[in-house]
Simulated scan of single mutants.
Amino acid sequence: MSKQIYHTNEIQKRVDDYISQFKEGYFSPLSLMARLSEETGELAREVNHYYGEKPKKPTEQEKTVEEELGDIIFVLTCFANSLDIDLSEAFDMAMTKIETRDKNRWTRKDLSS
Score class of each variant (00 low, 15 high):
34 A>D: 12
61 Q>I: 15
107 T>F: 03
108 R>P: 06
67 E>I: 00
25 G>F: 03
33 M>V: 07
50 Y>R: 15
88 S>R: 06
55 P>E: 04
18 Y>S: 13
49 H>S: 11
72 I>F: 00
35 R>D: 12
26 Y>S: 13
101 R>G: 01
109 K>V: 10
101 R>Y: 04
15 V>D: 01
86 D>W: 01
69 L>M: 13
106 W>C: 06
102 D>P: 02
61 Q>N: 07
46 E>Y: 05
91 F>L: 15
68 E>C: 06
35 R>A: 14
103 K>A: 13
92 D>S: 12
13 K>C: 02
10 E>L: 04
103 K>Q: 11
35 R>Y: 11
82 S>F: 07
25 G>E: 10
113 S>C: 04
50 Y>G: 12
53 E>H: 12
105 R>D: 08
48 N>M: 15
17 D>W: 10
59 T>W: 11
7 H>N: 03
75 V>A: 03
102 D>K: 15
70 G>R: 08
24 E>Y: 08
38 E>W: 00
41 G>W: 05
6 Y>P: 03
65 V>Y: 00
84 D>Y: 06
37 S>F: 05
95 M>D: 10
88 S>F: 02
99 E>K: 09
83 L>K: 14
89 E>I: 07
32 L>N: 00
25 G>W: 05
87 L>Y: 04
22 F>Y: 15
86 D>F: 02
24 E>D: 15
61 Q>W: 09
1 M>T: 09
58 P>C: 04
70 G>I: 12
48 N>S: 13
44 A>L: 09
30 L>W: 02
89 E>N: 08
94 A>H: 05
94 A>E: 08
27 F>P: 01
52 G>Q: 05
36 L>G: 07
12 Q>L: 01
49 H>D: 06
108 R>L: 10
77 T>M: 08
23 K>L: 05
10 E>G: 06
89 E>S: 10
62 E>Q: 14
24 E>H: 11
88 S>P: 00
86 D>T: 04
101 R>N: 11
24 E>G: 05
39 E>S: 08
60 E>V: 03
22 F>A: 04
55 P>A: 09
50 Y>A: 11
50 Y>V: 15
48 N>Y: 04
27 F>G: 06
27 F>H: 07
56 K>P: 02
14 R>H: 10
81 N>G: 03
101 R>E: 15
42 E>N: 07
33 M>Y: 07
94 A>C: 08
75 V>F: 03
5 I>A: 09
27 F>R: 14
72 I>E: 00
93 M>Q: 13
10 E>R: 02
38 E>V: 03
113 S>V: 11
81 N>W: 02
91 F>W: 09
76 L>I: 06
69 L>A: 09
43 L>C: 04
80 A>V: 01
45 R>F: 09
85 I>S: 01
86 D>E: 06
84 D>F: 05
105 R>P: 01
2 S>C: 03
51 Y>G: 03
4 Q>S: 11
8 T>L: 14
27 F>M: 13
78 C>D: 05
103 K>F: 10
15 V>R: 02
95 M>F: 12
